[in-house]
Nucleic acid binder design. Structure first.
Lengths: 95, 95
DNA sequence: TGATTGTATGACTATTTAGTTATATGTCAA
DNA sequence: TTGACATATAACTAAATAGTCATACAATCA
């Protein structure tokens, strides 16, 4: 890969390198949730969740769909969840 | 996953979320290289490469093997390279 | 031994960014 | 309209960390 390509891949991984964001992804991995739903699921503040969702959406990791005054966020690519599981089993395997 | 588990997964992804480290991984993904070999391959300074390698080793992403005064670093798990490729195709797919 | 080479590390700076607070924006109901 | 609710964002603080420079440590060779 060229440097710009590596840069993009790194930026993608960086988004997955924050526990709060993984928590958010875990909350929406089954089905899309509203921001307040995610707030409730994660226990984080609304502002913090909203900020993380903006980053995740900008990175193309989550989808965003307005429904009235609510906004539903969902997983864009099932591969992301798979990757988290892969890393998890990889970690538990090596102790 | 529990919070501590998510924390570990996040920490792992965070290591992959830096271009310089991806560059290093790309350099050693075929076969292990010495630190100076990686320095040459990446163009980074020796101190910087060494620091990143310490982090990667601590995260269990690379292997470390001394051979005389040289130290060979290699990929610990081929899955890591697969993941990078997955993200790359995922990104190029979505533009 | 001393000199040299390969690797690691401590101290420092600058940058990035997670989280908070307060507020703005947008949407619906009465 | 007004009021209530849902989401986004600006300003800020504090913490983490990439990169640099100098130097320490370790292993080899003359």
């Amino acid at each position: 890969m060229t440097d710009p390509e590596l840069e993009r891949v790194a930026r993608h991984f960086k988004q997955l390198g924050e526990m709060m964001r993984l928590k958010i992804l875990q909350a929406i991995c089954k089905k899309p949730l509203t921001v307040s739903g995610i707030v409730e699921a994660t226990g984080a503040t609304q502002a913090n969740v909203s900020k993380h969702l903006s980053l995740l959406a900008a990175a193309g990791i989550v989808t965003r769909e307005k429904a009235g005054q609510r906004v539903y966020y969902g997983m864009k690519d099932p591969l992301t969840v798979k990757m988290c599981e892969l890393v998890y089993t990889q970690l538990t395997k090596s102790g």
